[in-house]
């Protein structure tokens, strides 16, 4: 079916999911800068009959603060449209009766205000940056090793990311450290976890084949979305590297220069 291919799948699409960092903006000092054409592209999508959601593995800020940052950059965006790992983790914790020990960035703590953290029976780690001290990791380790059945949730599993002063270890490195110490496997909340993508689809009341993910991370955005039965398109902005186009396990349904080009190609199919 030709309609299943990019970009002709744009005809039958009902919803679009956008990654944020590297697609909408590049991070950096003072909140970063919008990627040229992306503010306009979001406006066009909102004016269309497509549903739109945003999906990020950001775990250093709570959603309110994060959305405020994007508004300041000029994006028309609201908190209810943004999916990030922390609220997804909160839903899982409540559903399964877990009381977490939290090793997350201070800015993220408000997301967990409604969660009981007394007498913890699991550990949640996010990108805690400078809070990843020996002492804090040891505390998390002791909670885990003291449990009959240790449970570790990790908000994403990234290896590293770019900071203004160079590359920095992401939460995945510390997740692996605790996995090794306690001989367990963490449950990853956030991209590329299928449950995470499914929660976005559920919110739009769409089937996977009716939605398209656009991101700069081949494995976590594109691969994760495809694993759920969605289409995945990669932009050549953000952390994109040319070697992504010959990756051994993930092939994007399409690769475009930037979000503006992707949106124009989709909307052209619908006229």
């Amino acid at each position: 079916m030709a309609d299943m291919d990019w970009p002709s799948c744009g005809k039958s699409l009902k919803g679009v999911i956008l990654d944020m960092c590297g697609v909408l903006y590049d991070s950096g000092e003072g909140g970063g800068v919008a990627i040229p054409g992306s503010i306009e592209a979001v406006k066009k999508l909102k004016a269309s009959d497509l549903q739109l959601r945003f999906c990020t593995n950001e775990t250093q800020l709570n959603r309110e603060a994060f959305v405020d940052k994007l508004k300041r950059l000029g994006f028309d965006i609201s908190v209810s449209e943004v999916f990030s790992p922390a609220p997804a983790a909160v839903a899982i914790l409540k559903e399964r009766g877990y009381r977490p020990h939290l090793l997350v960035y201070d800015g993220l703590l408000p997301e967990f205000d409604s969660v009981d953290t007394t007498n913890p029976n699991c550990v949640v780690i996010g990108d805690a940056a400078e809070k990843f001290s020996y002492q804090n990791l040891n505390e998390a380790f002791r909670v885990l090793i003291g449990l009959e059945k240790p449970v570790l949730f990790s908000l994403g599993q990234g290896r590293y990311y770019k900071e203004t002063d160079g590359l920095a270890l992401d939460v995945g490195a510390y997740m692996k450290a605790l996995e090794y110490a306690c001989d367990l496997k963490a449950e990853v909340v956030g991209k590329p976890s299928p449950i995470f993508f499914q929660s976005v689809l559920n919110d739009m009341r769409l089937q996977p084949h009716e939605a398209l993910m656009i991101g700069d991370d081949l494995v976590n955005d594109v691969g994760g979305a495809q694993h759920c039965g969605m289409k995945g398109v990669q932009v050549r902005t953000g952390k994109y590297r040319p070697s992504d186009e010959r990756h051994s396990t993930v092939t994007a349904d399409g690769t475009v220069d930037d979000l503006a080009q992707a949106v124009d190609m989709i909307l052209k199919q619908r006229h």
Partner: peptide, 19 residues
């Protein structure tokens, strides 16, 4: 004062991050 992380977890984390 109880159990404490050895070097292995930190080695493993660095191995993962730098592949």
């Amino acid at each position: 004062d109880g159990l404490a992380l050895g070097p292995g977890p930190f080695v493993t984390g660095l191995e993962y991050a730098a592949d």
